[in-house]
């Protein structure tokens, strides 16, 4: 079970209080984009063993969306951060580097 801390209301709760929202930091390709870009945006997802960045929503709480960095193998949650960002903040990257040296996820490392 994941223990997540909502960065908006500060509640540290277990997984059932939250709702998973899929992969984080997707770049949207909508009308007018190429078929290949659109297909990538819609269907192509990471499926890592280890570090993963995801979107979560504090569904049974303050209702806000946020990002979480966690390990898919150990279920360790490295940290949560604001949804208003295109990439994980430096402190999250530092934690990841400390705990999973050499980690990479999409184009972040």
């Amino acid at each position: 079970m994941l223990i997540l801390e909502c960065p908006y209301c500060g509640v540290k709760g277990e997984e059932t209080e939250f709702h998973a929202g899929g992969e984080a930091h997707l770049k949207r390709f909508g009308p007018g984009s190429s078929d290949a870009d659109f297909e990538t945006y819609l269907f192509m997802r990471e499926n890592p063993k280890g570090v993963h960045l995801e979107r979560w929503r504090h569904a049974n709480g303050c209702g806000k969306w946020f990002h979480a960095a966690r390990c898919t193998m150990t279920l360790e949650v490295f940290g949560t951060y604001s949804a208003q960002t295109y990439e994980p903040p430096q402190e999250i990257k530092d934690i990841l580097t400390a705990k999973r040296p050499g980690w990479s996820w999409r184009n972040f490392k």
Binding site: C9, V11, E17, N60, G61, C62
Partner: peptide
């Protein structure tokens, strides 16, 4: 105040 779930409802 704590917003949470009680069994299956918010």
């Amino acid at each position: 105040i704590r917003r949470t779930r009680l069994a299956q409802v918010a």
